[in-house]
Write a protein that binds this DNA or RNA. Structure first.
Lengths: 368, 368
DNA sequence: CTGAAAGCGCTTACAG
DNA sequence: CTGAAAGCGCTTACAG
């Protein structure tokens, strides 16, 4: 019943050519800036293009050029209802970085997510592979051993995966961030006991757990880890750990080091509900510095990853591979300790920016 | 230096066909489930596909089928640094809805954002148009008068735009939400004075502003609007309005009704910094119910839009148009008042879910 | 500078 | 059930 006035018909390069009175080759050259078409030719073509509202078909261009100018980004959803969990933010910020970098090179981004409970992401990945020139695959999409096979089909860059021979990976320096955090809690604040509230099994979690233990040992602090402290990177996971610990009448450590910011959010909420003061009774820290971290009460002390830069870098690495077959293998970004209030430091008077150490432009990622 | 073992070569349907000893037509039929290939044929093809790691080229399929199975989603970035503003969330949740719905129909989603200061989004839209079967265009990407021209080139569904003849649009019932909110503040709480802190010029903002005024008049409350109350949908915009008002020594109304949740976040922070108690001195409300709203202190009273459903609906409308040429024109989703604490209501004891009215499955959007 | 023609990798009538 | 062939809409040597 509702009908656009100008019925949308499929305009092709042939329509443009005949309207302009030239060959399709000339139309193509004008549109792509190849060769040196005469001014008159150019103008006639442009006019016809304008009058017809011609948009070249991307599929045909891709088939002819062998380049789609599209990369895929795949990540795993952490909950099926976005209102339940904002872990999303992490991925979204990274993806924004990918998109901006991609646009600068004329690429677009196909974004696809794998359901929380989808066992095998391969079919989806394969389906997408046909529509793109390359793939950025986030953490926890596919088991590590599934990657090489796929990488034989389409160029792939992984994000926050374990470095694998033959695969390209972009990640942050988890170890350094965690060490700074533990030293701040133990040496600056003098807290005698810590716990690491783990995230879901993943390379990031493993690296953070390892660094936590090593630095706790090095600083001489008592520390707890293990099944009782197993979260899943979500707020509700963190809250659950605290709740069941208190239900069992367990004693809390002086500081809870969370695997990520989302977990810390849940922990702070659970502690608050039980009347435990943060940071007076128990200090809490996160990891990532997602945008909401500064808005929590108390504001969250955490480790900032340059998420947007990491996304942009992942695209650039992929692009290098697509265009030139280049293949760097492992890019590591520096992180920055962001001291706010949840560790026990005093609230800053001015903006949070000034209370934290000034942002130091990354010395540049390190390729191994 | 790093090289995948199996060098990634371009495998085509011809490679599969010759390896399986059949024609390319048979390969295609097996892969697409057309016709009734003999079991043996099917097995030989599948084996060859597996052995070669064959992935059909999407561009070639699209060209042949006249269907890319890709839709584009375009939105405008609100800040260039995601750490500065989380308005992103709004768009991201909607986009998630689009993606999930798209996957169910075998479509993928090309996500693209327009820079904060990009004057004319048309070139980008045109560029994307060639790579997709249709477009979902968020609010504030393109001036309303620019849409029809584009819609002659590619099927388009707009989100939260003003309904335009010949264009398809999906939005929420801003008027109803705002009226419920104002009635709650004036009739339930008895607040005598309100202000509407506006968002950037847009159909959503206009609809909310209009309903605010109308309902304030109807309930007999004093109210303020105008240039002094002009925000921009961002937290910093909301904070700026409050700061300059207080700097001028202006009196605050009893309740500040914000154009969206982000604005409310900024307002609450600015008020807190000046020692104004929310909701004791001034009540604050939002609009949207983005995920973070429940984590604010006090928890934000707001109007929930079914963002994910709206995204899914936008896709479905678009899909209908792509497949069948169907064209509904304007879909309106119901909204739900979410009463938390920032309006002055008592904090709930249990989970927020129970304090708010139970979620009523939408009676279904209304098409006009 | 310009045009005729081949070719990109698929799908699908059309014969057999 | 299967294969040969046309055709989808572009780009780009290759001649002219």
């Amino acid at each position: 019943m509702t009908e656009a006035k100008r019925p949308r018909e499929i305009r092709t390069i042939y329509d443009v050519a005949s309207r302009a009175g030239v060959s399709i080759a000339s139309v193509s050259r004008v549109l792509n800036g190849q060769g040196r078409p005469r001014t008159e030719t150019r103008e006639r073509v442009m006019r016809a293009v304008r009058e017809l509202g011609f948009v070249p078909d991307g599929a045909a261009r891709a088939l002819s050029n062998g380049l789609k100018e599209v990369v895929g980004v795949v990540f795993r959803r952490v909950s099926e209802t976005p209102f339940e969990d904002e872990w999303l933010l992490f991925v979204d910020v990274v993806n924004r970085g990918i998109q901006v970098a991609a646009h600068e090179r004329g690429f677009d981004v196909l974004v696809s997510s794998i359901g929380l409970h989808d066992q095998d992401a391969s079919p989806r990945l394969v389906a997408i592979a046909g529509k793109v020139d390359g793939l950025v695959v986030h953490d926890r999409v596919l088991a590590a051993h599934g990657m090489p096979r796929l990488a034989g089909t389409v160029p792939i860059v992984t994000l926050n995966s374990a470095p694998t021979p033959g695969l390209m990976n972009v990640r942050c320096d988890n170890g350094s961030g965690m060490r700074q955090l533990v030293r701040h809690l133990v040496l600056d604040h003098g807290y005698p006991s810590l716990a690491y509230l783990a995230g879901a099994p993943s390379p990031d979690n493993r690296a953070r757990a390892l660094a936590f233990e090593a630095e706790a040992v090095a600083t001489g602090a008592r520390f707890e880890t293990g099944p009782a402290w197993q979260g899943n990177f979500s707020a509700s996971g963190g809250a659950r750990v605290i709740a069941s610990l208190l239900d069992r009448g367990g004693a809390l450590p002086r500081a809870v080091v969370c695997a990520n910011d989302q977990t810390a959010m849940g922990v702070m909420q659970a502690l608050g509900r039980r009347g435990v003061d943060v940071p007076g009774d128990v200090a809490v820290t996160g990891f990532d510095d997602i945008p909401v971290a500064r808005h929590l009460h108390p504001a969250l002390t955490t480790v900032r990853q340059p998420l947007q830069h990491m996304g942009a870098c992942a695209f650039e690495v992929l692009h290098g591979r697509i265009r030139a077959g280049r293949a760097e293998s492992d890019v590591v970004f520096p992180v920055q300790l962001i001291i706010r209030e949840s560790c026990g430091c005093a609230p800053s008077s001015g903006s949070e920016r000034q209370s934290a150490r000034p942002w130091v432009p990354p010395t540049g990622p390190v390729a191994h």
